[in-house]
Amino acid sequence: MLDFLQMILSGIAVGSSYALMGMAMVLIYKTSEVPNFAQGEMGLLCAYFTYMLLDGFGVALEIAIPLTLAVAFALGAVLEFAVLRRAKNPSVLSMIVITIGMEMVLLGLVSWKFGADQKTLPFPISPYDSVALGDIYISSLELLTLGIALMLMIGLFIFLRTTRLGMAMKATQQNFNAAKLMGIRTHRIMMLTWGISAVVGCIAALLIAPTIMHPYMMWDPLLKGFAAAVMGGMTSLPGAIAAAYLLGIIENLFGGYVSIEFKAVVAFAIIVLILCVKPSGLFARHYVKKV
């Protein structure tokens, strides 16, 4: 029983980083209608940027983190403005190719500048500290991830629900032309969405970096986050979050009870299964978007 609880808890902790990546992808998918495969590398670049500030320039963490988040926002906005918007009447396929291209450029940039070997991000919380909750343990970094993920979700929810800008974002997502007809400056909303999404992705990367840090560190979280987003129906933020936690938990239980070797693959087996039963995802909205 204790093992079981422990695995669930670790699953939830792992699910948090998937949830962050999933949220970031859903945000972009809803406005630009493209799965952003560069999401992971956008976060990667930001994590290495922090590393550079901390390790190379000796900047204090309290300054480095806000600075990185600002850079992440700018990076997202600039990529939307400079790369995606330039595509005239793109098909979904060409948009996907564009994001994969961006991903490769960013990955190449990081590998070239910092090298492919493992780095350690000087982070005040070591991934080896842990906190005891009764008889079960959770690493303090995982606890931090969980807390930050929850805070971000609630913050985003409130932002989308109550603010004028949030409403404009939702309107742009639902009907681009009608949003323009309301006088909403849709291009700015797109840049804003990419910026916010990049910040969310960057936070995910920063929380992963203390444990593993090399140019390919974002691959697994990206794929799992994408898997969660697909499972959640690709357009639903709560759906992606729920699916991410579900994925984390199932993955851990599978690793504990069935086979540790196939732990990483089980997520994709689950997607296949779920998409066979519910092709539009677990939480797809009733009003399917027009073509």
Partner: peptide, 13 residues
């Protein structure tokens, strides 16, 4: 102001 053909309301709002 323009009322487009086919309404184009924001369905999920």
């Amino acid at each position: 102001s323009f009322v487009p053909e086919g309404r184009e309301v924001f369905e999920e709002l």
